[in-house]
Design a protein around this nucleic acid. Structure first.
Lengths: 347, 347
DNA sequence: TCACTCTGATTAATCGTTTAATCAAAGTGA
DNA sequence: TCACTTTGATTAAACGATTAATCAGAGTGA
C-alpha cells in the first residue's frame, strides 16, 4: 500500500475539472498548448486546492531532484554560518533545496560525504574544500569556492586583494614591522592572504610570518604565541589571517598589558560574529558571501540546465574573484612612534 | 525524453541475472521470500555493478523521502556549526539526509522556511526555534531542541543545571557578587541559564542581571557594557549566558586594565570555538551536542517509522534533558579578597 | 471540394521502486 | 492419491509528474 500523500495531485485536479492530467501539467508549467482561458481556470483551482507538486514524481520523471549539495569538509569553520546562510538563500531563490554534508576533517571522509550527496541524487554541489584537497570529479556538476589561485576554483573572495588592503591600511598608519599570524601553511586561502599582505607593503617595510599550528605541534594546543616578545622586537602591527587568530592575538597582548591600538595594532580577516563586539572592536576585511554564493549557485544552476547528461564537470563562472572590503574599527591605529625597544632599526 | 540516470537500476540487474525485478528488490531489501543462494548472487552482482537505489523512485513509491529538515531560524548563531554537524552525523547514521532551511531572523520567515521543507517532502524535521516562538505544527513530525522548560521541547541541554554548575564553581572560589550578562530576556535558553545560576548561589551571595540588547537599544549596537564600573561596585565575577557575551566582557575588562582572573573572574556558556584559545582561556559549560542530536534524531526517526500517515506531531523523547559539563579554564579564579571598593559590603 | 496547417486538447509511455496478489512446484500428512 | 501448506519466484499495479505522439476539429487558400 503506497502511502498516499495528503495533498491533491495532478489527477485530482484533472478529474475535478474534467480535463486530462497532461493538460493540467501543461497549464501549470506553461509548456504545451493550452488555451489562456483554461490555463486560468486550472491555475485558480490548483491554488484553491493548495496543490504542491510532488518532488519525488517530478524527480523520477525528469531525473532532476531540485536539490544542491553543500560540502563543508571543515564544518567547524566559524565562517560556516555565513556560508550556509548565503548558499541556502541563493539556492532557495533559484528554486533549489540544500542538502548538507559534513566530513569531519579528513579527506577520505570528504569523498565519502560527496558520495552520500550523489547517492541522494543532488543535481550539483557546492564544495568549500578543506585546505589543498582536490575534488575528484563527482557524478554531477561541482562548484568550488576556495580562492582564485586554486586550480578549478569557480568563484571566491579575492583573498590576495584583501591582504593588499590590510597592508595598505597598516602602511598608511605608519607601521613598518608587521607580524603575519596564520594557522596553517597548507591553506590556499591563508597563503593568498599572506601573499597579498606582503605584496601590499611599501618599501622599507618588513614582515615575518608565524604559523600557529607549527607552534602548537611543539608546545601543545592553545599555547601562548609569545607576542609580547615580538612587540619587544619591534613589531607594531599584528595581521592575523583570520579573525579567530586575531582574537587570540588580541587577548594575549591585552593580557600582557599591551594596549591596543595605542601600543600595537591588530587586524583580522572575515568579520566574524564577535569582531564588532570585542574591545577594541576588530579592524578586519569582509568577504561578500552573498555575492559569492549568488555567483556560485547561478553558475552551478546554469551548468545543470545546459548539461543534459549527469556528468562530473567543474563549473566556471564569469566572475571568479569578488573584492573584499576593509572594515576599519578600533583595533588599528597609528604606529607607536616610540617602540619599547628597537632591535629592528637596523633591518 | 526522460533523462536516464547513469547507474544501473533494478531491472538491469534483473535481466542481467535472468530474474524478475521484484526478486531483486526483495533480495536487496531482505523482505520477500528469496532463497539464500539467490540473495547472495543478487547482492554480489549489484555490488559489482555499483548499484545505487534511486531515491526518487523509492520516494515516489513509499511516500518517504529519506530526508530530514533542519530549521535554524537564527543561523548566525555561533553554535550553528556544532549543531549542524551533530544533526547531520546522527541523521546520516540513521540513513537520512539533511536539508537545511534558514529563516533570516523573523518569525514569518521561519514559517516560510518550514513550508519550503515540507514542499520538498521531508519526512520530519528538527527545529531549533528562535527565542520563544511556537512551532505551528507542520505537515510532518517535528523535533524541537530548545530548553527543557519550553513546552513541546523534545530534548535539549539542561541549561538550568549548567547555570547551577557555574554558580557552584564561582561560589567555591569565594565569589559573592555575581553579574549575570545576557543578551536577550525573551530567550528561554538564556532565562533558564540565568535561573540556574541564581538557584545555585549560596546564602549571602548576590546577583544582578545585565541584558545587553536592552542596553544597546539605548546606546547603540556594540556599546560598552560599563563593566569597569561594575567592578568598582564590588562585583568579582561576571557570568555571561553565552561565550559570545563572555568574550565581550573579557575584552572590555582587559582593555580597562582589569586582570582576569586575578582581579575578577569571567565565565561563559557553550564552549565555542574561540573559548580555549583566547587569553585567558575561558571557563565555560559545554553541551553534549552529539548526544542531544542523537536523541532528537532517533526520536524523530522512530516517530516517522511508526506514524503511518504524514501528520504533524511534536516528537517526544525519553530523555529530554542532557547534562552540561563544566569546563574550568583560566578565566575563573579565587575571588579577590580586596576589591577595589566595597560599595556592596552592606548588601 | 480538397489538401493543408494550426490550435487545443488527449493518450499513453515512461522514470525506478515497492508490494500485494498470484502461481507453479515441491513437500507433507492421512 | 488427494488435499493442503510451504517455498520461491513472477506479475502487475501503483506512486505523481512529464512529454512525445496522436487526434479531432476548425480555419485557410487554391
Amino acid at each position: 500500500m503506497p502511502a498516499s500523500r495528503p495533498g491533491p495531485n495532478l489527477s485530482r485536479i484533472a478529474t475535478s475539472l474534467g480535463v486530462s492530467v497532461a493538460t493540467v501539467s501543461n497549464a501549470l508549467s506553461g509548456k504545451g498548448r493550452v488555451s489562456g482561458q483554461l490555463v486560468e481556470r486550472i491555475r485558480e483551482h490548483a491554488a484553491e486546492l493548495g496543490y504542491v507538486p510532488s518532488q519525488a514524481g517530478r524527480a523520477l520523471r525528469t531525473g532532476r531532484s531540485g536539490v544542491l549539495g553543500l560540502v563543508l569538509p571543515d564544518i567547524a569553520n566559524p565562517l560556516f554560518p555565513k556560508i550556509a546562510q548565503a548558499i541556502e538563500f541563493a539556492a532557495s531563490a533559484a528554486g533549489y533545496g540544500v542538502l548538507i554534508a559534513d566530513s569531519r576533517g579528513d579527506v577520505a571522509a570528504q569523498t565519502e560525504a560527496i558520495n552520500r550527496l550523489v547517492e541522494r541524487g543532488v543535481d550539483g554541489m557546492v564544495v568549500i574544500p578543506r585546505r589543498a584537497t582536490r575534488i575528484s570529479s563527482a557524478a554531477c556538476p561541482v562548484a568550488v569556492i576556495d580562492t582564485p589561485s586554486t586550480p578549478g576554483n569557480t568563484v571566491a573572495a579575492d583573498h590576495w586583494q584583501g591582504g593588499h588592503e590590510i597592508a595598505g591600511h597598516l602602511a598608511g598608519l605608519g607601521h613598518r614591522h608587521i607580524l603575519i599570524i596564520g594557522n596553517n601553511q597548507e591553506s590556499n586561502v591563508q597563503n593568498d592572504r599572506a601573499g597579498g599582505i606582503r605584496s601590499g607593503m611599501r618599501p622599507g617595510m618588513h614582515s615575518e610570518t608565524l604559523w600557529i599550528d607549527r607552534l602548537e605541534q611543539e608546545n601543545g594546543s592553545g599555547c601562548p604565541l609569545g607576542l609580547a616578545e615580538k612587540v619587544r622586537q619591534g613589531f607594531t602591527a599584528f595581521a592575523a589571517l583570520s579573525d579567530l587568530q586575531a582574537l587570540r592575538a588580541l587577548t594575549e597582548l591585552q593580557q600582557a598589558g599591551i594596549n591596543i591600538p595605542t601600543d600595537v595594532s591588530v587586524t583580522g580577516f572575515d568579520d566574524l560574529i564577535w569582531s564588532p563586539v570585542v574591545t577594541p572592536s576588530l579592524t578586519t576585511v569582509r568577504m561578500d558571501m552573498d555575492r559569492i554564493a549568488g555567483i556560485a549557485v547561478s553558475a552551478l544552476v546554469d551548468t545543470i540546465r545546459t548539461s543534459s547528461i549527469r556528468e562530473g564537470v567543474l563549473v566556471t563562472a564569469e566572475i571568479e574573484r569578488v573584492a573584499m572590503q576593509l572594515i576599519v574599527r578600533q583595533s588599528s591605529g597609528p604606529a607607536n612612534p616610540a617602540p619599547k625597544t628597537s632591535e629592528m632599526e637596523n633591518m
